[in-house]
Computed example of a mutant assay.
Amino acid sequence: MNYLFLDTLKSFIHYWANNYAEQMEKNNQSSVTEFVFLAFANISRWNVLLFMAFLVSYLIVLVENVALLIIIGFDHRLHTPMYFFLWNMSFIETCYTFVIIPRFMISLLTKNNAISLTGCATQMFFYIGLGDAEVFLVVVMAYDRYVAVSNPLRYKTIMSEVVCLKFLVAILVVSFLLSLQQVILVFHLPYCGSNEIDHFFCDVAQILILAAPCVDMFYVYWIVFNIYGFISFSVPIVLILISYIYIIVAILKIRNAEGRRKAFSSCSSHLTVVVLTYSCLIFIYLRPKSTYRWDKNKVFFVIYTFTSAVLNPLIYTLRNKAVKSAFRKAIFRRTA
């Protein structure tokens, strides 16, 4: 099945790649060599203030996530499956913000909003890959919570180091394969008109809009990328919902109230992250078109990017006694 899918995809890419030059010649089009971010051009007079706001927010993200990485990495009590996934989530979020924010901050100061096709493709590859990896990691963490609640005595056996590593490798391979396929399809499209991206990074939807006037069967590409969006958005949330249905069933089977409270408490941090992540994504991408304005959506995307990266470490830290204890221990050692 997998080989059939890959062969079909390869044939599709090969077909469009072979027709790329023909289509460019047919429409007498010149290829775009770079893209220009419009970002927040309408408020460019506030670039310095925007830079300071982004800098402060980005430093908060770095400090929080790096602190969590160090605490989990050096405290052997936290070397369990749950914290293994939490460590990788913090690392992915750190890389995710690094792919997008520093480039935009530099453009705010230098007013150089241009990016080469290679640079744009690279940013898109890591942006999509890391974003998908984070979402898929949340799915695996839901399964981890299910195992912890339903099989507490066999938890460490089922979620062994080898199993956790296999999950992580599978997440990264699938995420970056999906990302690579999308990048290849996007950058085999002809770009014949405007090269201005109405965003502050190489967003797939905004780049596809630039290709729309240059492609005869543009709707085919739009359908393909909607399928990718469905896989990245809908499939994970369905798997998470299934996991929590089983978790609720397992909790209800616990006889004493204190046991049920502890079981639910062990899932509360993860559930909070799921609600935060998907409520933001739904608000950005799935709200009614009548309320949709792209200039406001850019602001919402900035808020989502920083909110997720800032709040996720706090949620797991403030609601987790083990992490708080390790954090206090690290501070005490530092000040002693």
Rank of each mutant, 00 (worst) to 15 (best):
P313H: 01
V36Y: 11
T8M: 10
L252M: 12
I43A: 07
K26F: 11
S194V: 04
F35N: 01
S325E: 15
E161N: 15
L55S: 08
S11F: 10
Y58R: 03
S269T: 10
F283S: 14
V139G: 02
D198N: 13
T118E: 13
V32W: 04
T122M: 11
I197A: 06
N65K: 01
V56W: 08
M105P: 03
A263G: 00
S90K: 04
N27R: 11
T97E: 09
V302L: 00
E34D: 12
I197Y: 06
S234Y: 14
R154L: 11
A17K: 10
L281M: 11
Y228K: 09
S269W: 02
K10G: 05
C95K: 01
S31Y: 09
S269V: 04
I184L: 08
F300D: 12
S160P: 05
M82N: 14
T122R: 02
L59C: 13
F200R: 02
F35G: 02
I209Q: 12
L239C: 11
Y285H: 12
L208Y: 03
D144H: 06
S234K: 12
R255M: 07
N256F: 06
Y228P: 07
L189Y: 07
T33V: 12
A309R: 00
D144C: 04
Q123D: 06
L86Y: 04
A148N: 05
S232Q: 14
V149F: 05
T80C: 02
L86Q: 08
A39Y: 04
F306E: 01
P102W: 04
T291R: 09
K296M: 15
K111M: 10
N27Y: 09
R260D: 00
S30E: 15
L153N: 15
V66K: 03
G229P: 05
F85E: 03
F306W: 00
V149I: 12
N297W: 03
L276K: 05
S11Y: 07
L276F: 02
S266E: 07
Q23K: 08
L318Q: 05
T8G: 12
K156P: 05
N88T: 02
V249G: 02
S325V: 13
V299D: 04
R154T: 12
T94D: 02
M1H: 10
L4Y: 14
R260Y: 01
V273Q: 01
E161T: 14
N112M: 03
I171K: 00
V139Q: 00
H199C: 13
D75W: 05
V135G: 02
Y15E: 10
L318K: 06
W46H: 14
R328N: 03
F5E: 13
I43Q: 10
I70G: 04
Q23N: 13
E64R: 15
I303F: 08
S290W: 05
M141W: 01
T118Q: 12
W222T: 14
F84Y: 13
Y304C: 12
V275W: 01
Y228C: 12
